[in-house]
Design a protein around this nucleic acid. Sequence first.
DNA 1: TCCTAAATGCAAGTTACCCGACAATTCAAA
DNA 2: TTTGAATTGTCGGGTAACTTGCATTTAGGA
Lengths: 226, 226
Amino acid sequence: MSEEVKFWHLRNHQLFWVLNNSQVRQLCIITNYKRAKKGEMIDFGEHESSRIYLLKRGNLKIVQVDEEGNELIVDIIQKGELFGSLNFGQDNGSYEYAQVLTDSVVLCSFNTADFERLLAEHPTLAISYTKLIGFRLKRIKNNYSNLFFKNTKERLIAFLTDWANREGRFTGNQVCIDNFLTQKEISQIICSSRQTTTQLFNEWEQQGLISYSRKEIMIKNLKELA
Amino acid sequence: MSEEVKFWHLRNHQLFWVLNNSQVRQLCIITNYKRAKKGEMIDFGEHESSRIYLLKRGNLKIVQVDEEGNELIVDIIQKGELFGSLNFGQDNGSYEYAQVLTDSVVLCSFNTADFERLLAEHPTLAISYTKLIGFRLKRIKNNYSNLFFKNTKERLIAFLTDWANREGRFTGNQVCIDNFLTQKEISQIICSSRQTTTQLFNEWEQQGLISYSRKEIMIKNLKELA
DNA sequence: TCCTAAATGCAAGTTACCCGACAATTCAAA
DNA sequence: TTTGAATTGTCGGGTAACTTGCATTTAGGA
């Protein structure tokens, strides 16, 4: 990737708007670019080598692994979002990794120590960053409350609605989403079993409300799902 | 409260270690102190008037209310922890409030705008703050994964273990926790029904493993709960 | 093109846990 | 001390959704 392209990747990101051009040039130096293909795993790295990532293109999932080896998809990261050792590598027990969902992703990363130094030099950046993390906290809290109050069908609807609003292409009430998730993955996101999720999709399919394929999901009208 | 006491409240907090004495004195000026009694509700205040709180004494619960009015306890805040508009008041939909659990609490607070200004002046403080938020994110992610992978009994054990480690007084294997929660509240924390929680406590009580009262909870041996 | 592994479809058996109902107890205020 | 509200104790019915198990379809590499 050319230096110029690298520069614009960072320059265009909301987080770095507070920096001037020469500051962004400096930032380029500590930035590491990477391309990864579908299925590839990205390890945040614990401790010293921990990194913060910025996803430039594509989507990936954040998987949390508990002490018994259970895997849970805690978040879907999309273009422009940060992930990785957001708390600067001071980890407690549980382990997380990211896995690429789309055909390929482009991402850049910083060593947490470098990034921490950068924040120390640019307080306004530190505040923007803090707001981002705060927002993430809110998102997961919301998922948490969904899990308790909504049943599986409602959670699936909430997930589809959210996804459609984030990345869907609307034509009137109809919405079309580029699909990079299997039903199994969707079930892991909404905390349900694969079979239950499949069943819900088929019910809707029979009612002509939805059309699911590995390439795309078409929904006639989000409000009619029930 | 005397100025000197106020000073030491802030001086002793981990978050402000990076500041020197005169900086802490300045911080005192923008700080608002408050005492609140059991049951009292603390509204973070949306938008302009939003505040960040630091709990100096006691415990309180953070309750999230969704658009249908359902209430969920998303976190228990204890001495020394921050809560409130941690994401600087940029709120999305859902509403949160805090309610005092112990007989009384002492807390100090800052206007988010003031606090933001403070962070801008002290980048190292901004980093400490970010780490705190990151840690909170981790905690809720952990609860989230518990909710999916563990059954009610396991979640109750996890909660009690966590509580005991945070605030319990150990005597060998036995641990005694000052109790400020009703069984209903505990059930709301572990995302269960009141009846199921009661039943679990009674089972353990009959086995002589635990002794529950409104004042304290005694557990013979955390590892024997099963 | 074939071939294998992954993804999807379908059904019946099982169960953890919610929910309603009500009694007994505790607590705090009057 | 009384009184009423909140908390705790106990029971059983109902059910959403998990599980197990297998058949079918799809996708992607050799």
